[in-house]
Simulated assay, not measured.
Amino acid sequence: MRDVLSRIGIGSARVDTVLPSSTVRAGESVDAEVHVEGGSTDQDVDAIYFALETEYRTEEGYQEAVVDKWRLTEPFTIEEGEERRFETTIEVPRRTPVTVGSVSVEVETGLDISLAVDPEDEDRIEVRPTERLQAVFDALESLGFSLHSSECSARPGGVFSTSASFVQEFEYRPRGGEFSGDVDEVEVVPVYGDDALTVHLEVDRRGGLLSEAMDVDERHTSFTVTDADPDAIEGPLADAIRDLS
């Protein structure tokens, strides 16, 4: 009877991931320790698995997305009441969304147990921008813009050169400086490559009701970032915004 109950999650093994730090920069890694505690009966565990998860907006609502997934350990048996610990390193890809605005990212840890409900654990982590993206943000701040909102949304087909099902949008608004009064907002969409960061930029100009109704107040461009120097980015970024405003 205990074996039957454990298969539906009652008295089953438990898993818990302990993170020494819940903050990590995209493209880097964080160490973790996985604690597995046996339940009321011996259970065969095929693997410990991880999934890095977020969610994005679609026309139908919000949908879960797996940024990355991987497995830890060979099959093993966790005996009744036994406690085991496993050390691992969680790699956070560059494309992982930055956790600002409404965006959240979680590490899900699970035990793969055949013919049974998989015990799971979820840990929310704080993801900071890559150094190149942070340099873009710093350059925007120097130009008088501040972050207003951010969210992940479904990738429009063929618009961005990425295989991901979603992109993250950052909306900046002028708080002062050269573009105050001329620009409503600047939207930034990063697309990550191995050697560079491609930044897609949309500038929403201040215009009359007619121009806004016709969507002619929005203009687009993109540029490539190869280093993490805000001073080097600020000039080309300002030129791009001027050209579109």
Rank of each mutant, 00 (worst) to 15 (best):
G38I: 04
D31S: 13
T96F: 04
T77Y: 03
E91H: 08
E202F: 13
G39T: 14
G11C: 11
V167I: 15
A47I: 04
V216I: 11
R242A: 14
T73M: 11
A154T: 11
E91V: 09
V167Q: 07
G61N: 02
E178F: 06
S12K: 06
F160A: 09
H220L: 02
V159I: 07
P75E: 07
R25Y: 03
D68Y: 12
A196G: 07
R2Y: 11
Q43R: 09
T226H: 05
S104T: 12
T73K: 09
S153V: 06
P97L: 04
H35L: 11
S150E: 11
A116L: 05
E218L: 09
S161Q: 14
I233A: 08
V107K: 00
G193Y: 12
E74I: 06
I8T: 02
D231A: 15
A135Y: 01
V186P: 01
L19D: 01
I113W: 10
V159M: 13
L147H: 07
S150R: 03
V136A: 04
G207R: 15
R205F: 01
V127E: 00
V34F: 02
E59I: 04
G158N: 13
V203K: 08
E178T: 10
S12A: 15
T88W: 06
V15C: 00
D31K: 13
G157H: 08
V98T: 14
I90T: 05
I48T: 03
A238G: 15
E83D: 12
V183H: 00
